[in-house]
Amino acid sequence: MNEDSIILKTISLKKYYEVRSKFLKRIKQFVKAVDDVTIEAGRGETLAIVGESGSGKTTLGMVLGKLLKPTDGRILFKELDITHSLPNHLRGKIRIVFQDPYSALNPRLKIAYSLIEPLQTMSISKRDAVEKASHYLQLMGLPESYMNYYPHMLSGGQRQRVVIARALITEPEFLILDEPTSMLDASTQAQILRLLRSIKKEKQMTYLFITHNLAVARYMADRIAVMYAGQIVEIGGKNSIFQNPLHPYTRTLLSAYPPPNPRSQWNPIIPEELAVKYYENKCRYIDRCPFKIQECEKNTPTDIKVDENHYVKCFLYVKT
């Protein structure tokens, strides 16, 4: 990727949570929600982070959105190190859209207030802020009159539009979308996804699209990163991931989605249902993997380049 066009870059980003497993036990145990994640996202690109619950995809979003402090590693935004603090002129340039539109808006505050809230930290007059709020509300396809409504008067899809408008109002360059449609109905989901795509094109934004739904990722993303146990096990262009999935986990995930046509066979790979373990000296997917080889027991797999921009953490693809 061209170095100039990179908006956001992480270097060995880590976020560990300490868990006290046994009573009075002195050994520290960690949930490695984000472990050694190095990714970059270019301007105007949508990078989808795909994974199941517990993969750490939401934590990654929270760390990049400055809601959580990373344990280790660095975050670069337009070549500026923002790991510890965001300089003033970059305020509002990275925003998050949350999953649950039903609780992301304070039920006691009018839509107008929720919309202008992110502008309060910036030097913008109240009148300009309200004008902006109404502009973005209309951009999201909602009438201006909704400014005076309370959240409970809106449907789930309308609320999510408000949540997105609230993120767009600070004119972000990097937008983190954390499962923005997973709580919405199919028809509403299509509305929101299309809207997000057209806004991205118009504003030349970069999306980090976090989802558990591969179909949604396929529609939205340019590149896809598959996360498992805090690590990115496979990353590549959309076509390359869908046409040539390599990591056993990616393949399992893909096979779990039924083909839309009822006449096509649905033969999902069924993995063992085991708790995620954060192994240090072997592959973390080893417990569930149907293709494991001896090497997987001994070492941690590292990124293996299989194609232009397509990397996989799996010993099956080591060229000897």
Binding site: A190, Q191, R218, Y219
Partner: peptide, 16 residues
């Protein structure tokens, strides 16, 4: 209006 996992969809149909 549903994204497909086995094929690329150019543009989703939207029920307004």
């Amino acid at each position: 209006s549903i994204p497909k996992v086995d094929s690329d969809v150019e543009e989703l149909y939207v029920i307004e």
